[in-house]
Design a protein around this nucleic acid. Structure first.
Length: 399
DNA sequence: TCTGGGGTCCTAGGACCC
DNA sequence: TCTGGGGTCCTAGGACCC
């Protein structure tokens, strides 16, 4: 039985602004003018939500103070919080700048009960970083995440062992992680409104409503089956950058300059991270807010600007008629199919028995010893062909 | 609701190979 | 000339998350 904490800073960017400027405390604060990146709880009381357009937000909450985002301050605050999280548990999985899972199983003798750990963490973050943080405690990741959302703002919610389904089933389906507007609409149209409704349907029946993969996930979650473990980051799968262009039309030279700047930014980040990528994606948004993507896969992975830029220019050229017709409001690029820069060592690990638990433990030990990003490829060579086929699902490439 | 900047994962069709 | 089944890779789009 596991005990998992989900820790989530409340209205993170807005809370940092209120911490650093006493004049903002107790007042509705919006971070970001064009689009709301974060809204303080005072602003949320008027109905403002993050990702809302700035004009709509000011209409709902005319007395709100709008501040410019200060990303450096948020990164700094996040680092300070994660330093405390890392002290609180051996296994910490960062989900985003303001959110993490902690595995506190088996720490009772040393650190106290999970509730004590969570309470201490909340106090430390408040006293040492000056920010409110909500924590959910439960036996699975998913439930801990739902619990922390229920605990907000500045709260602690524990779902006791044995009480999981009683907590989960009355909730509306959109409270589940992975159910957004589109899935919610489909489920509602099928008469499914609560998690209990979801639990009454078979996985097969759900697959007709939301597709196979989503059905499998929702069915499992509705029965509180979630075997995902807390683990340190796997390393990113893609690196990208984008730029909104506003309404006015741009010359080819201007568009090319934007493209060059984006390629420069992305390839710098790739080199800094020691990553190379094979697939280049051009992302465009038009005047009517329709979006398209165009992609090309290169012969070999790279992090240098030239081949990536040349590829993107060709893709952009292909889209020129549409751009001229509808106007362009956003250019984005993404490099995916990332690999780590090769070099380093190759290890050969003998596998004594055809036991995938053993093998996974061995791979985990390699990650622990050399870092999560160290393991880029595992080739399984068996004494007979059975082994390779049987071992396939282990999927060690995901290191 | 009139729209930022990052990401992740899934689906589906087509090309191509055996 | 017509016909299988399975697998992988690529491309495009969609949904979701913070």
């Amino acid at each position: 039985m596991f005990v998992i904490l989900h820790a989530d800073l409340d209205a993170f960017f807005a809370s940092v602004e209120q911490r650093d400027d006493p004049a903002l405390r107790g007042r509705p604060v919006l971070v970001g003018g064009g689009v709301v990146l974060a809204a303080s709880y005072e602003a949320r009381a008027c109905g403002v939500r993050s990702a809302m357009g700035g004009s709509r937000a000011r209409q709902l909450c005319p007395e709100a103070v709008v501040v410019r985002p200060r990303f450096a301050a948020y990164v700094e605050a996040s680092r300070a919080v994660f330093a405390l999280l890392d002290e609180a548990a051996p296994e910490v999985e960062q989900l985003s700048i303001d959110e993490a899972f902690l595995d506190v199983s088996g720490l009772e003798a040393i650190c106290g009960t999970p509730v004590q750990i969570a309470a201490r963490l909340r106090r430390d973050v408040r006293e040492q970083v000056g920010l409110p943080i909500s924590i959910g405690v439960a036996s699975t990741k998913h439930l801990a995440k739902v619990a922390s959302a229920s605990a907000k703002p500045d709260g602690l919610l524990v779902v006791e062992a044995g009480e999981e389904l009683a907590f989960l089933h009355p909730l509306a389906v959109e409270r589940l992680w992975g159910v957004g507007p589109a899935t919610q609409t489909r489920l509602n149209e099928a008469g499914i409104r609560t998690v209990a409704d979801l639990a009454r349907h078979s996985e097969h029946a759900l697959s007709h409503v939301v597709g196979r993969a989503a059905a499998r996930q929702l069915h499992a979650l509705a029965h509180n089956r979630d075997a995902r473990r807390v683990r340190r980051g796997r390393g990113r799968r893609s690196i990208g950058s984008q730029r909104a262009l506003g309404r006015g039309s741009r010359s080819s030279a201007e568009l090319d300059a934007v493209l060059v700047a984006l390629v420069d930014r992305v390839t710098r980040r790739m080199r800094a991270a020691g990553r190379v990528g094979r697939t280049v994606v051009l992302r465009l948004r038009f005047g009517d807010y329709a979006r398209v993507t165009r992609s090309r896969t290169l012969g070999k992975p790279t992090a240098s600007a030239r081949p990536i830029l040349v590829t993107l220019r060709r893709l952009l050229e292909g889209a020129r008629p549409t751009i001229e017709e509808r106007g362009l409001t956003l250019i984005g690029i993404t490099v995916t199919n990332l690999e780590h820069v090769t070099g380093g060592v190759q290890l050969e690990l003998p596998v004594e028995e055809s036991d995938r638990i053993e093998l996974e433990a061995t791979l985990d030990a390699v990650r622990d010893r050399f870092g999560a990003g160290s393991l880029t490829r595992a080739t399984l060579v068996g004494a007979d062909e059975e082994l390779g086929a049987w071992m396939g699902p282990v999927d060690p490439e995901r290191g």
